[in-house]
Amino acid sequence: MTIDIPTLLLALLSGYLMLGLQLLVARRGALRQPELGLWTWGSWGFVLGFGFFGARVLIPTWVSVLLGNAFIFGGILLYVIALQRFVRRPWPSGPYWLVWLAAVSFTGLMLEIPLSVRTAWLSLVYAGLLLPGVYLVLRHGWGGEASLRAVGLTLAVAALALILRGWHAFTHPDQYTDLLRSSLGQGLTFLCAFLSLMGAGFGFVLASFERAATEMKRLASHDGLTACVNRSSTDDLLAHLLERGRREGSPVSFAMLDLDHFKQINDRYGHQSGDAALRAFAADVRGRLRASDVLGRMGGEEFGLILPATDEPGAMRLLEQIRQAVAALKVRCHDGREFGMTVSAGLVVVASDSGLSADRVYALADKALYQAKHAGRNRVERHLIMPMPAAAD
């Protein structure tokens, strides 16, 4: 049994051509990630590489070998760089070693060495190029998009197939006297390696769509400037956590926070500095919260803070820490000037048996915030809720 190599090359060329066209369509639509552009160029590198391999009946063999492998090498390299950018991890020591690897590999192509030795060496080189991509996905991208895991696994299969191809070429040199010679070992390893790479490409498109959908979902529930949850999400979470507090018998604290004299910051230092102040404030507050706490931007310079299972002493202690930290915070303008700010807060602590709705809690916290503003700002006021009377016997 043998696999016809020219037919296999034509099938792979057609498959990568379809992948390249699909990537072009995706890039013109909702997916405009730069890493997807790198994968697109890598796929067209494979199209050109297989095209030059198949064109050796029309062009000199050394041109076919040199250009075909050069485009395949470049395609794999672009795939790995795309993965590195997708998982947002820097290279440990920079990819400069790849330049030397390419120089050594393509210098070897020009030497008079047996095709079996050249095939074994280049197969191992290609496998070595893929291994950093496999590591990036399995080590840093496994907890992300589900489709990205499939990319990592198919790249691992491709690397293993290339290693087996290198071993097979070294141990069965008689089957590698010509690239277009049909043989079972050469055909199977070639097919498995580059078909897996093609599958990784389709998986990468799915991972890109998955990330785009996640980002759109995040933008629908979060404020783009401060990365806090938005007003509607804060309202929904407050209602949910109040209900959970009733079931579990635990208090829920809710505070309204408002930056003092924020209009003066915008007027004196500009709206960009005002945006910087909002981001700095939100980042400072988030750094003091538990994973279960929620900071939402209610609008303008007003924020809502939900503290599940938190009594009045605990909530007051946290709000005082926030107030003091904000008063000590310095924000730098684009022109080098620095300015400070203060925050006022109104707190409501809701007992599990209070029966208050989310709207009522919001109104009481807003009232306490007004009291803090009226009392001179840069302070925390709390609204006391009287306990419900016990039922008569």
Rank of each mutant, 00 (worst) to 15 (best):
T310I: 04
T310K: 00
D311F: 03
D311H: 08
P313L: 02
P313K: 06
P313I: 07
P313G: 10
G314P: 00
A315S: 13
M316N: 09
R317N: 09
R317A: 09
L318N: 00
L318S: 12
L318Y: 03
L318K: 03
L319C: 15
L319V: 07
L319I: 09
E320G: 12
E320P: 04
Q321D: 15
Q321N: 04
Q321I: 10
Q321A: 12
Q321C: 13
I322R: 10
R323G: 15
Q324D: 13
Q324E: 03
A325C: 11
A327I: 03
A327K: 10
A327H: 09
A328D: 07
A328H: 01
A328L: 06
A328S: 13
A328M: 11
L329D: 01
L329V: 06
L329A: 04
K330N: 14
V331A: 06
V331S: 03
V331L: 02
V331R: 00
V331Q: 00
V331N: 08
R332C: 11
R332L: 02
R332K: 04
C333T: 15
C333F: 14
H334T: 11
H334G: 01
H334A: 09
D335T: 15
D335L: 05
G336A: 15
R337N: 06
R337L: 13
E338L: 12
E338R: 12
E338Y: 12
F339V: 09
F339A: 10
F339I: 04
F339D: 03
F339W: 02
G340T: 12
G340N: 13
M341G: 00
M341S: 11
M341E: 06
T342S: 10
T342L: 11
V343S: 01
V343Y: 04
S344T: 09
S344M: 07
S344V: 06
S344E: 04
A345T: 06
G346H: 02
G346P: 10
V348C: 04
V348Q: 09
V348R: 06
V349N: 11
A351C: 15
S352H: 08
S352M: 09
D353N: 01
S354N: 11
S354C: 15
G355R: 14
L356H: 12
L356K: 08
L356N: 13
L356S: 02
A358G: 15
D359G: 08
D359H: 07
R360M: 12
